[in-house]
Simulated assay, not measured.
Amino acid sequence: MSKRVFTEGTEHIESTEQHSQNHAVIILASGLSQRLGQPKQLLVKNGEPLITDMTRLATTTNPQVIVIVIPDNHCLIASTMTELANQYPTVQIVVNSQADTGMAHSLSLGIETIVALETTSIDRVLIMGVDQVLLDEPHLTALLAGKQTVVASRYHSWQRLEKHQNRDEKVSDIIGLPLAINYKLLRQWQPELIGDKGFRHLIRELSADQIGEIDNDQLSYDIDTPEQLAFARKLGWLDS
Rank of each mutant, 00 (worst) to 15 (best):
K3E: 06
K3P: 00
E11D: 09
I13V: 12
I13D: 14
E14W: 03
S15A: 13
S15W: 05
N22D: 15
I26A: 03
I26G: 01
A29E: 05
A29D: 03
S30A: 15
G31L: 06
L32C: 02
Q34A: 08
R35Y: 04
Q38F: 00
P39K: 11
V44H: 12
V44Q: 15
K45R: 15
G47L: 06
G47A: 08
G47V: 06
R56N: 10
T60E: 14
N62L: 06
V65M: 05
V67Y: 02
P71T: 03
D72C: 10
H74D: 13
C75H: 11
C75V: 04
L76P: 02
S79Y: 09
T80H: 09
L84E: 15
Q87K: 13
Y88L: 10
T90E: 13
T90A: 05
Q92Y: 07
I93R: 14
V94S: 09
V94N: 12
Q98F: 07
H105W: 10
H105N: 13
S106F: 05
L109H: 06
I111C: 08
I111F: 10
T113W: 00
T113I: 01
V115T: 05
A116S: 15
V125S: 03
M128D: 01
G129Y: 07
V133E: 04
V133I: 15
V133T: 09
E137I: 04
P138V: 04
T141K: 14
Q148P: 00
V151P: 07
A152L: 13
S153A: 07
S153M: 03
R154G: 04
H156N: 11
H156S: 11
W158D: 11
L161V: 02
E162Y: 12
K170M: 08
K170V: 08
I174S: 05
N182E: 15
L185I: 08
L186Q: 09
L186K: 12
R187Q: 14
Q188H: 09
W189H: 07
I194E: 09
K197V: 06
K197I: 08
G198V: 01
R200Y: 10
H201K: 12
I203S: 05
R204D: 13
E205S: 14
L206Q: 11
A208W: 09
Q210A: 08
I214L: 06
D217N: 15
L219K: 06
L219G: 01
S220Y: 07
D224T: 02
F231L: 11
A232N: 03
A232Y: 04
D239Q: 06
